[in-house]
């Protein structure tokens, strides 16, 4: 049991299970999944579907945080890529043409990579602290998205494009497959090559890594670029799901949810060790929480308060220092009792 508790997925999984259990008690048909028109329907499927953009963003964020950095600009990148893709579609005569949709996807993702590279260059060559470096794009990015859409909400009617975020394959939402593909890619990239080791090494101590012959800067730049492309993909999923681009609100605050997911998943903000599977669970916890709050009908004015409170509890349970403190206080009490007994005896 002790060894099980030490596993890095123990607490995240326990909390996810706890949340699901709560939902089950609250509404017994929470777990029920129906088949309608060959598609699966149910709350769990919704969580996977609506959680897809967050999970994708959080996967990229995990690697950035592992390098002792953070990327605040992901929300803006989500907005920009969505805007660019929809803009490209709406400008063409045949919005549903295969070539047009492909072009929209490709140029949006290229832009996402460029934006990620920009962050990476500011951090690695510019030597700017990540939180500041990415703050620049976080603020400017909303403006860029507005520029692209000329301040309007652009709607497109393109079933092909819509498929990315709302289509289904083998009965499951297509976005689930995108998530899986990215998760597996990230896992293979970091664990089958030496990239994971280098990221953890640079994140723990970049100077020592440089002296060991690792190209710290190249690692940093590529990690931010990867995070950029993840945010870009999330932007496509989101905008295609609603067939529109809203430069102002798309991906709003997703960076905070993503950071939270990473931390809940067991990766420390101090960099070093990272856990992609933990992040996956962390993102699911957050999405489940959001769904739960809507489902149990918390008044909209206080949903954020409720969410914040649950997150606080989750983080406290996750914190080793906090657990230790509670545990040690108990131990210390025992210890002082014993000391008193011997003194009197």
């Amino acid at each position: 049991m002790a060894r099980l508790m030490k596993h890095h997925l123990f607490w995240p999984l326990t909390m996810l299970a706890g949340l699901l259990l709560f939902n089950l008690c609250y509404s017994p048909d929470f777990f029920s999944i129906q088949i309608r028109n060959g598609h699966l329907y149910g709350s769990l499927i919704d969580i996977l579907n609506f959680g897809a953009p967050l999970i994708v963003v959080a996967i990229g964020m995990t690697l950035v945080i592992a390098t002792k950095g953070v990327d605040l600009s992901v929300g803006s990148i989500v907005a920009i890529t969505g805007a660019l893709a929809c803009m490209t579609l709406s400008k063409s005569s045949d919005q549903n043409g295969f070539a047009v949709v492909l072009l929209a996807i490709v140029i949006s993702l290229v832009l996402a990579i460029v934006l990620g590279l920009w962050n990476g260059l500011l951090v690695s060559l510019g030597g700017i602290q990540p939180i500041i470096a990415t703050l620049i794009l976080m603020v400017a990015g909303r403006g860029i998205a507005q520029l692209i859409t000329s301040g309007q909400i652009i709607t497109v009617s393109s079933p092909r494009y819509n498929y990315i975020g709302a289509g289904s394959l083998l009965g499951l939402p297509f976005s689930v497959f995108i998530v899986l593909a990215i998760f597996i890619t990230a896992l293979l990239l970091t664990r089958k090559s030496a990239l994971g080791l280098f990221i953890e090494s640079v994140g723990t101590n970049s100077e020592a890594s440089r002296l060991a012959g690792i190209r710290s800067r190249a690692i940093l730049i590529s990690v931010y670029a990867f995070c950029g492309i993840c945010a870009g993909i999330a932007g496509l999923i989101l905008s295609s799901n609603v067939s529109s681009a809203d430069g102002n609100n798309a991906g709003l605050w997703v960076e905070l949810d993503a950071i939270l997911a990473v931390v809940i998943g067991g990766t420390s903000m101090n960099g070093g060790r990272f856990y992609l599977s933990g992040t996956l669970i962390g993102a699911l916890i957050i999405q489940t929480l959001t769904t739960t709050i809507y489902m149990i009908g918390v008044p909209p004015e206080i949903t954020l308060v409720v969410k914040a409170f649950v997150v606080l509890v989750v983080c406290l349970i996750q914190s080793e220092a906090f657990r230790k403190k509670i545990f040690e206080r108990r131990k210390y009490r025992k210890y002082s009792d014993k000391a008193e007994v011997t003194r009197h005896a």
């Binding site: 090559s193 030496a194 990239l195 080791l197 280098f198 953890e200 090494s201 723990t204 101590n205 100077e207 020592a208 890594s209 002296l211 060991a212 012959g213 690792i214 070093g272 060790r273």
Partner: peptide
């Protein structure tokens, strides 16, 4: 500050330079 990577294991610290030299 310039030698060990403290959050990694002994094994990872030992093979680090060799792996860096072999590339990704």
């Amino acid at each position: 500050t310039e030698g060990i990577i403290e959050n990694l294991t002994i094994r990872e610290n030992i093979i680090l330079a060799l792996q860096a030299n072999r590339g990704l």
